[in-house]
């Protein structure tokens, strides 16, 4: 192994290990303050800058568990799963699943899903630009298109199905200075997260609309997606759901075939 590589492996090891400076024996010169303290400057920056990034990405989780508990979880996460990229766009994506594995989080079974709602907002924030499909354009789609019609969700659209009222929990702890108590027995929720012209938004979806959006994301044609939605909720109203989704800016395009052509609006 090259000496440069060995140096890098040993230095990085010392960075991750809270007690480790032994790994750097002989590599590092000291002047004044001992080498261990100087290495600690890097270790502190590694931990602080990354835990800070987590605080910024998961402010509601932070509020729910408090500073000390969050710091402990965040530090453990950073040590266990340091970033795998030189940019932080994806950093924190594994945090919800990590929380799910922590013994200390077991008494808060809804917490990982609340973290997931926050993570999906991060994804929506950075998602690609795309046109927004409005109701007028949709209304102008010809009748013969109904069979082949596909609706393309905006690339920022994300769904989370939770066994807990995670949207309600997120909402009150995000918005209210005095968060409301949320009854866990009120059951599961599906969160719709997307980026509209107003910015990143979060909404609760009914079972039918959740099924509709899921199928649309999978590329199913609108007719089949509606059938599936009715299957999930016999009272599903396709027209109302469509109007809501259009108004929200959650749809990007309509596609259909006519003759030999594929049309997009």
């Amino acid at each position: 192994m090259s000496s440069l590589r060995e140096l890098q492996l040993r230095l990085f090891q010392a960075l991750r290990d809270p007690k480790g400076t032994g790994a750097c024996e002989g590599l590092v010169r000291g002047k004044g303050p001992v080498a261990a303290e100087r290495l600690a400057v890097h270790r502190n920056h590694f931990l602080l800058s990354l835990t800070d990034a987590l605080r910024v990405t998961f402010p509601v989780v932070l509020r729910l568990v408090g500073d000390d508990f969050f710091r402990m979880l965040a530090r453990r996460f950073v040590r266990e799963k340091p970033p795998t990229a030189g940019h932080l766009t994806c950093f924190g994506g594994h945090f919800p699943a990590f929380l799910d594995r922590q013994e200390e989080v077991a008494p808060l079974p809804w917490l990982p899903d609340v973290a997931a709602v926050e993570w999906l907002q991060q994804e929506a924030f950075h998602a690609a630009e795309a046109p927004v499909l409005d109701l007028r354009t949709l209304a102008a789609v010809p009748d013969h298109a109904a069979e082949s019609l596909r609706l393309v969700p905006h690339p920022s659209v994300r769904l989370l199905r939770s066994a807990f009222p995670c949207v309600r929990i997120w909402e009150t702890n995000h918005r209210d200075s005095e968060p409301a108590v949320v009854d866990l027995r009120s059951g599961g929720e599906t969160a719709l997260v997307w980026r509209s012209l107003r910015g990143v938004e979060v909404e609760r979806l009914s079972a039918g609309t959740a099924e509709l959006v899921t199928r649309l994301q999978q590329g199913e044609c609108f007719a089949a997606a509606c059938e599936a939605a009715v299957g999930a909720d016999p009272f599903f109203d396709a027209g109302a759901a469509l109007a809501d989704l259009c108004r929200s800016g959650a749809l990007s395009a309509a596609q259909w075939t006519g003759g030999r052509n594929t049309h997009t609006a």
Binding site: S2, L4, Q8, L11, F12, F46, P82
Partner: peptide, 18 residues
């Protein structure tokens, strides 16, 4: 970075020919 893990910090290089 090394071994696919990133430190989010700028670490020193030895000033060697290598």
């Amino acid at each position: 970075s090394v071994g696919g893990m990133f430190s989010n910090d700028l670490l020193p290089l030895p000033y060697t020919e290598e």
